[in-house]
Design a protein around this nucleic acid. Sequence first.
DNA 1: TAACCTATCTTTTTT
DNA 2: AGATAGGTTA
Length: 724
Amino acid sequence: MSILENLNIEQRKAAERVEGPLLILAGAGSGKTRTVTFRIAHMVLEKGISPYKILAVTFTNKAAREMKERVEGLIGEEAKRVMVSTFHSFGVRLLRMYGSKLGYDSNFNIYDADDQKRLVKNIMKDIGITDKNTTPARVVSAISKLKEEGITPEEYAADSRGFLESYRTVSAVYSKYNVALKNNNAMDFSDILVNTNKLMDDLEIREKIQERYQYIMVDEYQDTNKIQYEIVNKIAAKYENLCVVGDEDQSIYGFRGANIQNILDFEKDYPNAFVIKLEQNYRSTENILEAANHVIKNNESSRGKNLWTDKKGGQPISIIEAKDGREEAYFILQEINALKNQGYNYKDLTILYRTNAQSRAFEELFIKFGIAHKIFGGMQFYQRAEIKDIIAYMNVINNPKDSLSLMRILNVPKRKIGPATINKFREYAEANEMSLFEALGHTDDIKLGPALKITITEFYNGMMSLMEEAEYMPVSEIFTEILTTFRYKSYLEGIGDDRVEERLENVEELRNSITEREKNAEDLTLGEYLENISLVSATDDMEESKDYIKLMTIHNSKGLEFPVVFIAGMEDEVFPSQKADFDTGQLEEERRLCYVAITRAEKTLYICHANERFVYGQSQYRSRSRFLEEIPPHLLESKTKIEKPVQKKKPSASKGVENFNPFKKKVVGSADLNLPYSVNDRVTHKKFGLGIVRNANEKTVEVEFTAGKKKFLTAAIDKFIQKA
DNA sequence: TAACCTATCTTTTTT
DNA sequence: AGATAGGTTA
């Protein structure tokens, strides 16, 4: 009897098809991880395929780890020889081995978004960009997208739109930026993919890899971009044993170049492909699934599928309407307490939101009431200044060519090395074709005051000896050395503001995390450590067994499932994002995101929205999300925790409860007018009193009250103000 | 060079 | 509102 007896018919068909191209269209919650793990087990146990020849690409390290564990549960130790990895980890591994072919040393550093921004900023300053309409952050995101779409600086420079200033800016920075990265022996996230792809064009390497990985599986294929697509297809070209798994309705990474077309075109790429649809959902109740299906069917991009469940009925979806963001958080807290009384644990509960900034209201409240919770993603630990400083020291020790990291620490702690001095060394380094760090050893050739010369030599010698020692030193000791020899800890203690404690705690937390890693991996090298922390994703350290409420963006919830889900901030301009307002493509991606959010829930789903929200410290009136209107009313149940002053109207009895739509739009008097208000109109507000219109367009009206300026959406304006 | 003040930006989403 | 950058002063 085959182990595949454990699967349903469709899953089994997919798992036993081991040879040739295979497309698994796996709806949300249809057991694709189960299918893929059994498929691997079947390959090894029943088809006699060496686990060494199997490559499985997942979206996060967490997914990779889990898949490995589950395969191990089926086939034992052998599972360790299967290569289960994310694209980035896989790429880095190859690049450490073969990167010299592309001119990199094997100890290259990996730059995160913050590093990218600082590098771009330096370049913009160096080449004297005066373009006021752009920022380093924008240039970085433009460059990353270009890279992941496979467009080189040369190709971009030749673009006919080059007469536009923004194009010229990006173009000028793009090539310089690449040169700088290379000089620093560093790669950004996109480079990892781009360079891996380049390696595959080396015949010798490609053949080696093709022979090694004769069986390939790619999860979340709908979110691969052009470069990832090319990497996979180059490796698979020889044996064509390529199995891709995905769901076009869950493609949510377009902003970083993901191309939904990759999955839609798989059958064109491989005309002999075998296609399997997994349509039975094992996760959610019928109600939740029906809501999700109703939302997604509004997308042109959806091919339509027939996702079903045998969990008939289920609880209705609870809608929570709040006055403002704070009240929303408070209502959710009340509901959490109620659930707790019903026997739920915190670990069953998850709050999802569109943007990281929304986590704040919850965090404040949960801290205040001492509720166990954990926020995944957002302002990450490794982005805090003191942590980045220490990492920068480590980066330089690992790779002295890393001038960007070096510039970060040269004057941290303060050594009286200002921009003027740094520039002298930069010029010297450039003129003599050496790295900035090397230049620090040539203090005799550069005009410096005697005191400065001593400080710099001291720093240089200190780093040199630590670099030598570091080869045989555990990371935790290198860490201690940095704190002591370079007096980083006393520097933090001496800052003397109210956050000294917090910074020192963070530093201790870093020490703990290093020791923790060393426990799990003996002989952890500095290079391995740095690589590890560069490639962690937000949910990698999630521990399902720990009893805390989980908070994360919907993007980060991809691939996960939770008994109870709260979707917060279900308002137009928030979700869908206001950025998607005039772009159907983006609106469809937002809708897919909504689909992902709904389908995370197993038993209970709450959708929450507020009528007023602070954005950039300004109060704005909001209407509920258009996506909410796409859910049939009979699946919804309005839930209000605090009595509203004016809420007398009850649904008329004749309509019946089933047809009662708690969201039916109130008729707005000026619905047929594009511009109900114009500048200088006097208006009244029931709370803010008299005000004057300062700004008005089709979408919003801005009114100045004594209490300050408020923005109103024209669509819902009559709810709040009246002409005076 | 450092400390302090003010003006400006931020919020999509992430490996 | 909070963070940060940039400019001014000591």
